[in-house]
Structures are given as structure tokens and as C-alpha cells.
């Protein structure tokens, strides 16, 4: 097994991935590294990649006039960074910054989308892996919005 293929198979996002699918997604993947402070992507840019963190912590953040930069979510080893590549207009809605030295699998989003389009079984498999993450982030965001630790009325 090639090194990158093993890395893909070992990543929690692709846990239990079918051999044939692994061959398909393999062609879209490559290994990347980021130093502390590097941006994986920035708000407004084209969402043409997704990242599967192998090591390190990434901050998702947004800029607010008067409040400066605000981190609203951190992601860690094993997490998927980026969701905007999934649906048009494929544009990042926040910055992603490495809080420490980061190793990741970068997947070419256009490549992955095309393969999913060509093989709906693969597309369905990928969706089943992405949707739970989406839902988990939605629920997390919902609790954060409630500001449960904030000042009472």
C-alpha cells in the first residue's frame, strides 16, 4: 500500500472506506504541512480544497470591527476542516489558521466533487461522512448562540 493511501485509510474521516472508493479519492489527495500562524484558507476565497487534520490544531475565526479577530471554533487531529467546498458557490465563509504546526491531507475539492458526481455510490458514501460533521457543528453552534454562560437577561 502506498504511504498516502495508508494515511487516507487511517484518517477517521475515511474510516472503513471501501477499496475501490479509496482508489478513487486517492487521486485527489496530497500531504500538506502548515507552520504555526499559516492560514489554511481565508474568508471569501474559493473553496477548492478540504483538509483532513492528521496532527495539530486549527482555529476557525472571523473578523469583527471593534472586537478584532474572534475564534469561534477550533479543530483538532482527526477533524475535517472546511465545509464550503461541498455546495456552490464554493467560497470560504471564515479564516482557518494553524494554531500550531499542522499536518493534513489536502483534497482537491473539484476533483472529489467530480468523482462523486461520476459515481453516486461514492458520492453517497462521502455525504454520509460529511453530514454528521455538519450536524454536529450545527448543534454546537446552536448551543454557542444561546450564550448559556453569558449574563442573564
Amino acid at each position: 500500500m502506498r504511504g498516502l493511501e495508508r494515511i487516507i485509510r487511517d484518517h477517521p474521516f475515511f474510516a472503513g472506506l471501501d477499496d475501490a472508493f479509496c482508489q478513487l479519492v486517492y487521486g485527489c489527495a496530497k500531504n500538506v504541512r502548515f507552520a504555526e500562524g499559516d492560514y489554511l484558507f481565508r474568508e471569501g476565497e474559493a473553496a477548492n480544497r478540504l483538509y483532513l487534520l492528521r496532527q495539530g490544531r486549527v482555529a476557525l475565526e472571523t473578523k469583527t470591527p471593534g472586537r478584532g479577530t474572534l475564534i469561534f471554533r477550533t479543530l483538532n487531529t482527526g477533524d475535517l476542516v472546511g465545509l464550503s467546498w461541498l455546495v456552490p458557490p464554493y467560497r470560504w465563509a471564515y479564516d482557518a489558521r494553524a494554531l500550531e504546526s499542522v499536518r493534513a491531507i489536502a483534497m482537491d475539492a473539484a476533483c472529489l466533487r467530480q468523482k462523486c458526481e461520476e459515481d453516486h455510490d461514492l458520492g453517497y458514501d462521502v455525504m454520509k461522512r460529511v453530514v454528521p460533521i455538519l450536524i454536529e457543528r450545527l448543534h454546537g453552534t446552536q448551543i454557542q448562540l444561546l450564550d448559556v454562560y453569558g449574563d442573564p437577561v
Binding site: 478584532g68 469561534f72 477550533t74 494554531l99 500550531e100 448551543i143 454562560y149
Partner: peptide, 17 residues
Amino acid sequence: VDHAPPDWRGHVGVVTR
């Protein structure tokens, strides 16, 4: 924490996670 300034190195997100 629910949100943090950029110099925070810890977790941001809900405790349930």
C-alpha cells in the same frame, strides 16, 4: 470556550464535544 481572541491556544467549541 465559546469564543476566543486570536492568541488563545486552547479549544473553542461546546463542552459536549
